[in-house]
Nucleic acid binder design. Structure first.
Length: 509
DNA sequence: CAGGGATGCAA
DNA sequence: TATTGCATCCCTG
């Protein structure tokens, strides 16, 4: 099949048994080159076979809901038939390409087995308390309207606060506030980091920040979610298995991987995600998985030791960098080390660290130098990975997932540096994706083996959300943690923390 | 109405 | 001028 998941989901909706799918040409083409998101059968057949399978309408292709809906008066059997034949013709060629790129095992042991699991997760969906969420929306709308009035008064005239064009005139032309930075197009920026720097200059600025925050929550996380609730009162987002070049999943309609978590208002929205009757939610997340992978890949003895002792990794790195005992680490020392730890995962440079810590570039460089002096294997690993990727053209994860980076040899310095950052990040983010995908496959099998009713319903990059019958919660919690922690044996332990509760807010931690 | 830019949410 | 995504709003053509 090409893109089997919507078909499997349609079978679940029709209460029909699922066939075993052996080969998904969309996934296979993505393994060969993860830069092409959702390779279409049209393009593949033309490129690999020189065949024109013809444009597909939504009758032959999966519809938005994943069901096959035929107009019975005008069934086109020819196009689906040509497409089916094209998939069959593609199998050998793409398999050879996967083989040549070392991707066959990843394909057959991770990506293919994940398809029916994701189909089931989409089919099950997650419960939404629409009445509660509606009341959150009413509250937010009221506060937003009040703020809008106050902003208009302070500006001296009404304008559309959501229009950056109009807001720019108000702030920089009419109120005379200083321009802090410009957008890539060269016009004055009004983004949150700019507003934060202007907050002591005019009362309007704090109102604007709050307006943006609350209106974002209202429009994106209240209105949008309510529109997508199914007839069963649940949200059935779609997982995109080929959406991220690093190997992560992505999600859409809705994207439940970016539900607010930090502010109080964000947590109110998380309260609307609920378990069904007689069930509860279990949220299990890998603790610092990317830094643990960095410790493993770099074999840095200091970092491995910190994880082996299971101490707060940001405090532990701060202690080492500053040459003090862990208990003497100040808040500021920990904050700096935490920023560098995160920056390492993204291919940080001094400029970026300086921005985030609001310090000079020179001072940021000094912090980075001190860090690398204490973690020399990390420094060597970072340098080596870029060099290796430049040589062979790709990076590799612990399960052999490759990301090709032609940018590394670009004539354009900006593109080349982007390639270097991607080379630094891809093995780490990609290995984390490998690990949680394997955990999903193992956990699904373990739940079935023990005849448990607990089901995975969401994956949010380093965490799994399960809906669990109340009477099973202890057994499923223990099984989930053991499975997630046991999927890989790295040079540092994998650690899982968890929370349980009737809503996503209660189960969070 | 499609598409791009700006913005902001998550890990 | 730190990685990966997706959604919203505004604005233009």
């Amino acid at each position: 099949m090409h893109d089997a998941k919507p078909f499997l989901r349609a079978l679940l909706e029709a209460d029909l048994p699922l066939p075993l799918v052996h080969f998904d040409s969309m996934l296979a083409a993505w393994i060969v080159n993860p830069a092409q998101r959702a390779p279409s059968l049209d393009d593949l057949a033309y490129r690999e076979l020189g065949i024109e399978v013809g444009a597909v309408d939504d009758a032959g292709e999966s519809t938005a809901q994943g069901a096959f809906e035929f107009d019975e008066t005008a069934i086109d059997l020819e196009t689906p038939a040509r497409r089916a034949l094209a998939v069959a013709e593609l199998v050998d060629g793409i398999t050879e390409q996967m083989e040549a790129r070392g991707g066959n095992e990843l394909f057959s042991t991770i990506e293919m087995p994940l398809i029916p699991i994701l189909a089931r997760m989409e089919y099950d969906g997650v419960g939404l308390d629409s009445a509660f969420l509606t009341s959150v929306g009413v509250d937010l709308a009221g506060r937003v309207a009040t703020l809008e009035g106050e902003i208009h008064s302070l500006a001296g005239r009404p304008f559309n606060v959501n229009s950056t064009l109009q807001l720019r005139s108000v702030l920089f032309d009419e109120l005379g506030l200083p321009v802090i930075k410009k957008t890539p197009k060269g016009v004055p920026s009004t983004d949150a980091s700019v507003l934060e720097k202007l907050s002591d200059q005019h009362d309007i600025v704090a109102k604007l920040l709050l307006f943006r925050e609350l209106d974002k929550l209202r429009s994106t996380y209240v209105e949008a979610l309510l529109k997508l609730v199914g007839h069963d009162g649940r949200l059935h987002g779609r997982f995109n298995q080929t959406g991220a070049a690093t190997g992560r999943l992505s999600m859409e309609r809705p994207n439940l991987q970016n539900i607010p978590a930090r502010s109080d208002e964000g947590r109110a929205i998380r309260k609307a995600f609920v378990a069904g009757d007689g069930a509860t939610l279990l949220v299990a997340d890998y603790s610092q998985i990317e830094l643990r992978i960095l410790a493993h890949l770099s074999q840095d003895s200091g970092m491995i030791e910190a994880f082996a002792n299971d101490i707060d990794i940001h405090a532990a790195t701060a202690a080492r960098v500053n040459g003090v005992p862990t208990e003497s680490v100040s808040d500021d020392m920990r904050r700096t080390s935490k920023m560098i730890n995160f920056g390492l995962l993204y291919g940080m440079e001094a400029y970026g660290l300086a921005q985030r810590l609001d310090i000079d570039r020179e001072e940021a460089q000094h912090h980075i130098d001190e860090y690398f002096a204490q973690f020399p294997e990390v420094k060597a690993y970072m340098a080596g990975i870029v060099e290796e990727a430049r040589g062979c053209g790709f990076t590799t994860t612990i399960l052999g997932r490759r990301r090709y980076l032609p940018e590394l040899n670009s004539q354009n310095a900006r593109d080349r540096q982007m390639g270097e950052r991607m080379a630094l990040n891809a093995p780490i983010q990609g290995s984390a994706a490998d690990i949680i995908k394997k955990a999903m496959i193992d956990l699904d099998a373990n739940l079935v083996e023990r005849s448990l009713g607990g089901q995975m319903i969401l994956q949010i990059h380093d965490e799994l959300v399960l809906e669990v019958p109340l009477e099973e919660i202890d057994e499923v919690t223990a099984l989930t943690i053991a499975t997630m922690e046991g999927v890989a044996s790295l040079s540092v332990p994998l650690k899982v923390s968890y929370g349980v509760g009737p809503t996503l807010a209660d189960a969070g931690h």
